[in-house]
């Protein structure tokens, strides 16, 4: 009897394992192994043509002496600090508005419209926004000129270049996060909401004391995804500014690309990539602690 029980469990485990094996193998090959390979290459000199040569900590020492690294890290952190809060709050507000006040075909239409940027090609979007930002004749400046204000060179001035690129990212990703929030809000029990109404809670109180706490796991996920995505920003910078003017929009991912593919210095680029990984993990750790602490309270 005991034997049959174990063999059934084992059989079920084997069947279960067989189901996840293809995904596991693919994820291991394309997601996990590159991380370990990058860590290995970061200790080597590797140009993609000859076998990697072990150089110990040389790449990391050289990286620590890179005079533009601080500048680039600051840009990247600024970019994260602009994009993540805005896209998170904006997507939450839009989702709450549609779920609360537009539960009809107009709401569906608005949801679709806000989602369109998500499916648009990033490079094509960057090209369109590049044109819209132009100081002479760009759509945004034409609008600004209507009020008698002078044109703004959005991508050509240090104070505006990075926020302008970040704005495109926010426009691009808000729809995606909005859909996730919307699904979360729709899952909030109507009984709880109704009970709150009976108790005399205002819509803002219901949102603040019921909806938001219930959406906390979703917010945690959205913030995490947002931070990771923003730290890896490359395409927008590549297409819109090339890191300029000067180094105003140069980001870590763009630097990694330059070292790896322009200079064929994979080892050095991997050292920078590993550095980025460590930074993201640290931020993730702090974020997890923050959310846990809030949970405990």
């Amino acid at each position: 009897m005991q034997k049959t029980f174990f063999s059934r469990r084992r059989r079920q485990a084997l069947i279960g394992g067989a189901y996840i094996l293809p995904s596991f193998v693919l994820m291991f090959i394309f997601n996990v192994s590159p991380i370990f390979l990058s860590i290995f290459y970061s200790f080597t000199k590797y140009d993609m043509t000859a076998a990697p040569v072990w150089v110990g900590l040389d790449n990391y020492i050289k990286l620590s002496q890179n005079k533009y690294l601080g500048n680039v890290l600051t840009n990247t952190v600024q970019y994260v600090l602009i994009t993540v809060p805005i896209q998170t709050i904006l997507s939450l507000l839009i989702a709450a508005f549609i779920a609360g006040s537009l539960k009809n075909r107009y709401g569906s239409f608005l949801r679709s419209v806000i989602f369109i940027p998500v499916i648009a090609s990033l490079i094509a979007s960057a090209a369109v926004w590049d044109t819209m930002y132009k100081p002479d004749g760009g759509l945004i400046n034409q609008f600004i000129n209507l009020f008698g204000a002078p044109s703004v060179n959005f991508l050509g001035k240090k104070p505006t270049a990075l926020p302008s690129v970040a704005a495109v990212s926010i426009w691009k990703s808000t729809g995606y996060y909005m859909v996730i929030y919307y699904a979360g809000i729709m899952n909030v029990s109507t009984e709880v909401q109704e009970a709150a109404i009976v108790d005399g809670a205002s819509p803002i109180q219901r949102f603040w004391y019921i909806t938001l706490p219930i959406l906390k796991p979703i917010t945690y996920m959205i913030v995490t995804l947002g931070i990771i995505g923003s730290f890896q920003v490359f395409d927008l910078v590549y297409k819109m500014t090339g890191g300029g003017p000067g180094r105003a929009t140069l980001t870590v991912a763009y630097m990694i690309y330059s070292y790896a593919f322009q200079d064929k210095r994979m080892g050095y680029a991997c050292a920078l990539a590993v550095g980025l990984l460590v930074v993201i993990l640290l931020i993730h750790l702090i974020q997890t602690l923050f959310f846990k602490e809030r949970d405990a309270k």
């Binding site: 890191g243 300029g244 003017p245 000067g246 180094r247 140069l250 330059s258 070292y259």
Partner: peptide
Amino acid sequence: KSFEDTLLANIQEMFQ
């Protein structure tokens, strides 16, 4: 290429 990107960035810095 990276040399030219660096020179471009520095000349842009000068223009600013």
